[in-house]
């Protein structure tokens, strides 16, 4: 499938994946994330249920302490 991940085209050798799978596949190592699929918020607990398919837009932001 071809998706857009953080504004960049990304080709993944799978027909669909959960948001959690994508996080693992891309090696996002930061603990705290905010994720969106097609502009809609996907909360932490929903990441194992929400499926990403061809043409979808995925956005991932990581958070670190300091301020």
């Amino acid at each position: 499938m071809k998706i857009t991940l953080n504004n960049r085209p990304e080709e993944i050798d799978a027909s669909e994946m959960t948001v959690n799978d994508i996080i693992q596949y891309k090696n996002f190592t930061f603990k705290l994330l905010v994720t969106k699929v097609n502009g809609k918020l996907v909360k932490t607990a929903e990441r194992s249920q929400v499926t990403v398919r061809d043409g979808d837009t995925v956005e991932v932001m990581h958070l670190i302490s300091g301020g």
Binding site: K31, L32, L33, V34, L41, K43, M61, L63, I64, S65, G66, G67
Partner: peptide, 12 residues
């Protein structure tokens, strides 16, 4: 905010 958890909370 200082804490990453609070940053996640307000963003969501």
């Amino acid at each position: 905010f200082d804490k990453a958890e609070a940053k996640q909370m307000i963003a969501e």
